[in-house]
Amino acid sequence: MSTPAIQVKDLHKSFGDNEVLKGIDFHVDNGEVVCVIGPSGSGKSTLLRCINRLEEANSGQVLVEGVDIFDPETDLDAVRSRIGMVFQQFNLFPHMSVLRNLTVAQEKVRGRSKKESVEIARANLDKVGLSGRENVYPGHLSGGQQQRVAIARALSMDPDMMLFDEPTSALDPELVGDVLDVMKTLASEGMTMMVVTHEMGFAREVGDKLVFMDGGVIVEEGDPREVLGNPQHQRTQAFLSKVL
């Protein structure tokens, strides 16, 4: 069996006295799309943020392509540059044009030439349907457009996997579809994805695996159609009855 893209072992994380992750074990295989759902405060975003160490875990292990990211000898910046991350609040750099948002890390982190990074950036802008917006500043784009730029920014680093932290939660309902379409395209191209989301339709249609979290533990996981259609655990049933 090949090394999983992401492997999490007995992960614990507390904010002060509040333990938000109480021993998480799970993995994401290469090319797999894993969706994580659960009520707010269940720890799903914290779990995602622990995977590229934006959040410092208290104990446990996270292996990214077999590399232990808590090991002090690991080049964390190098690992992070292979993990694309998309945030709920987009977090585009507001003082840079769209094109610069996509090229800056390619040049400074990947060491690509300006010409090469511009080519890659344009290709990715085209992919998210925003060709021609190169010289616009993020503040002049709609939320949905900003999120698509954020996805293109992450893709421009040629990541091995993508993490999505509630990518559509800050969007007006009519803008959600465009972002989900881009994500579906990515999934169909075989991108390894871990998606924290409230979009049950997306999870059902695109997800290879669904993880339901509540109270800092994984309550149930499995095939999305199984979990959503026939939840085994009572807490899963209660949550789904509220959101579906």
Binding site: A78, R80, N91, A105
Partner: peptide, 15 residues
């Protein structure tokens, strides 16, 4: 400067 700006930059691999 919002914390998300730092997080976005670090997640792209910037030191």
């Amino acid at each position: 400067v919002p914390k998300g700006q730092t997080e976005a930059a670090r997640s792209l691999g910037m030191s």
